[in-house]
């Protein structure tokens, strides 16, 4: 067991218009990447409810990637800016729960960036492999800064949802 390499499972949410097409392109161009990633299609990165990410972790994923069009290139004009804000909020939530930063990743990939996407996938798999399996509930209870983090969360939540605090 000790010398067996840890194979993380990573769930990726890809927007239909850029990132899913980047994955298509990586395929057409026969760019190889590690098979530890399992992809889901959403219409826009803006559809990714933070609860999807939590669900994936809860079901045993070791890492989650959200991929969308570059800022300014979202098919729905500006929704990935909302993804961006939501993502930073999510990151803080996860930090508060004791999760390592590298387990979630927001990746911009245009339909032309198959190579970039494949590279990002490999990089993330490597990082998560180095972290080892997610031992979530244990870490959570040991984290000291929960209160501070939660306070910050409330603020960010308001911002991400575009309501004046």
């Amino acid at each position: 067991m000790a010398d067996e390499r840890f194979e993380p499972k990573i769930i990726a949410f890809l927007c239909n218009w850029c990132s899913y097409r980047a994955a298509d392109l990586a395929g057409t161009a026969r760019i190889k990447y590690e098979p530890n990633i399992r992809m889901l299609r959403v219409m826009c990165s803006g559809r990714v409810d933070p609860s999807f990410v939590l669900k994936a972790f809860a079901l045993g994923a070791d890492g989650v990637m959200i991929a969308g069009c570059h800022p300014g290139e979202c098919h729905y004009l500006e929704q990935n800016y909302k993804t961006m804000r939501r993502f930073s909020m999510l990151k803080h939530t996860l930090q508060a729960m004791g999760m390592e930063d590298d387990r979630v990743r927001l990746q911009w990939a245009s339909a032309a960036e198959g190579v970039l996407l494949a590279g990002a996938i490999n990089e993330m798999i490597e990082q998560v492999r180095a972290l080892g399996p997610l031992d979530w509930p244990k870490n959570w209870s040991e984290n000291g800064n929960i209160e501070e983090a939660i306070e910050q969360l409330v603020e960010e939540h308001a911002e991400a949802m575009e309501v004046p605090v």
Binding site: M43, D49, P50, K82
Partner: peptide
């Protein structure tokens, strides 16, 4: 509606 789903994800 163009179906991006952003509002779906945002509704508290």
């Amino acid at each position: 509606c163009k179906g991006c789903g952003t509002c779906v994800a945002a509704c508290p």
